[in-house]
Design a protein around this nucleic acid. Structure first.
Lengths: 338, 338
DNA sequence: CATCAATTTGACATCGATGTCAGACATCGG
DNA sequence: CCGATGTCTGACATCGATGTCAAATTGATG
């Protein structure tokens, strides 16, 4: 007999399938000795409930959808990893659904996944978690939704995020603490909502320390290492060049670092460089780049926690659950005292 | 009415549910006009078959499992992306299952996914596709399995891969064609099966061109950019230093490139550098690194194709389907004539 | 000990699709 | 015009679990 069903267990234990079902789902109203017996038989037969039958008859699918834009990015990979771990712990499964907002008919694709798989919830990664049209689809389907690191929190979703502003502020304070006063800042792209918050944190720290920000030292990049190199050239060519450069993400920081090397500017002796995200690129060069660890995996795992929480599920759409996870400065070799 | 079922469609079209089922699944024996009518109604009602009901009654689940070791790596992300696209085209869904071979009980985890979700097939990414114990679990479950870029092809699985040896040979020939004779080679870690094949290709090209390989110019790294930098130092300090360095992967090539910059060795004027994989890191620096594009996404998509192919599925385990996908040299700025 | 409430248990319908099989209908040759 | 063959179509059982509800059992109480 290849596949063990609930009937097999029931027969062997001498009870009804329904009782086995009760034991499996941890419901009340089963005598302790019966419960134990059933559990023993379950273990013996290595019985595993058929997820399909289960979700067909009950209202839950034990399936969460992870909706992402660009599944290839390292960011998405970390988020997914966290979600996967969260699901595993709670015996849920994760279905990854790429969403290409540029493709016509993406809305139907999404609707299709939701209704065909009867998803129990959706985790939405940036940047598409800021897409109103997508949120509308979830809301319309009444699907509990949790956004990871969104820029705004729609009323119909839970959110899990980190404090970009505060983290940038702390990083800046760390640089100031090292004695730096002329600090260059490489902004991220405008459409990325985190960019603004990071810059805000930078400025706030400078202001609090009463250090003037030289606007010539603030330049805008697009999160690519390419612009990091270009803007690095620009900043380092300044007559009174900065002693530290804070880039809004790690790729750009890497670009700055490479440029410094190219010009024989010793890091961190002559120049401190730091980034944001703790992306793989922050470890690609030597010295490795000081950065802010964004708890990507933890955020995703927390999103799973929220989604499987019955209290949250009850309020369709699941407003009201908002979590802010702690970040962490990762101090590495690319920063030092002036 | 929120959820449209097959009965609703049947009622509206004035036929039986079974006929609707036939139309949906593209079965024969339906009069053309009936078929058309049903399709019209399906579209009107925006009907989507419930995947659970479908797989409960039929023997198929329309679900494929992607088994990966480290879901965070860029490699895995590309593979997953390809698999996702392949699934989408064929209205399958993908369930990502991380496998931690270090964790006790991983075998039961895997068995659990297979039997609870009634997976239709497994795609296994490197490096765990070379794990005999894992393969044994799939074989035992009779699950059709396709390995992506394995080092060996077990008799019970299909495989999709690229020709590492040939690609490395072509890259070397390209360098030779540019006039390079002293070519450094950075080997990959021994446990990575592709490493040996890449080195083999390098040596074969050198041999064919009757250029002696200076063993002092052949050094072993571990695929990290860190060792790339260290070994770069070593190679560039050689009395008669190489005019070109071929690293077995892009991270190491990036390390070499950074080291060259640090020493003021112009790339590609004084030194050509190339890597392997077309990883993001190959684009992280400037000039961007010449490399070999490994068709990761295409391999995964091909794996899906094989898995959903009925012919393959019939032979349990699915021996006999082996695909070799074409690679591509990506010529960028880091290589040039001597 | 009878009665009633609370607890435990199982019979049966159900979720939404597909597989099986038999019946209805059309076509064709003799 | 008949029977044989082949093409459509639908009734019904089924997949494997859970929800509902009533029956059986237990325990408490007067």
């Amino acid at each position: 007999m290849s596949i063990v069903t609930i009937k097999d267990v029931a027969a062997r234990a001498g009870v009804s399938p329904k009782t086995v079902s009760r034991v499996i789902n941890g419901e009340a109203h089963v005598r302790p000795e019966v419960r134990e017996l059933v559990q023993k038989v379950v273990a013996e037969l290595d019985y595993r409930p058929n997820a399909f039958a289960r979700s067909l008859s009950s209202t839950r699918s034990y399936l969460l959808g992870l909706f992402i834009d660009d599944p290839v990015s390292g960011y998405a990979a970390d988020v997914q990893h966290g979600a996967l771990i969260g699901c595993r712990e709670r015996s849920y499964h994760l279905v990854v659904e790429p969403v290409d907002l540029a493709a016509p008919g993406w809305e139907n694709q999404v609707r299709g996944s939701i209704s065909a798989l009867r998803l129990d919830g959706a985790i939405v990664a940036p940047p598409i978690c800021d897409e109103a049209a997508l949120m509308a689809v979830f809301a319309e389907a009444g699907l509990p939704t949790v956004l990871v690191a969104p820029s705004v929190a729609p009323p119909t979703s839970g959110t899990v995020r980190m404090d970009d502003r505060l983290a940038a502020q702390e990083m800046t304070e760390y640089l100031l603490g090292l004695g730096h006063r002329r600090i260059g800042f490489v902004q991220g792209p405008i459409r990325h909502s985190a960019s603004a918050r990071r810059e805000e944190g930078f400025r706030r720290a400078m202001e609090k320390a009463a250090v003037a920000v030289d606007e010539a030292c603030v330049v805008r990049g697009d999160f690519s290492s390419r612009t990091g190199m270009e803007l690095g050239e620009k900043l380092l060519a300044l007559p009174d060049r900065p002693t530290a450069i804070f880039a809004s993400n790690d790729d750009m920081a890497l670009g700055v670092l490479i440029t410094a090397m190219k010009h024989g500017i010793a890091v961190p002796e002559k120049l401190s460089v730091c980034g944001f995200d703790d992306a793989p690129s922050s470890r690609a060069a030597w010295p490795q780049v000081t950065t802010v660890r964004q708890p990507k995996a933890e955020m995703a795992a927390a999103a799973v926690d929220i989604l499987v929480n019955p209290q949250f599920r009850r309020k369709a759409g699941g407003e009201g659950s908002h979590l802010m996870l702690p970040h962490e400065l990762v101090l590495r070799g690319s920063t030092g005292p002036i």
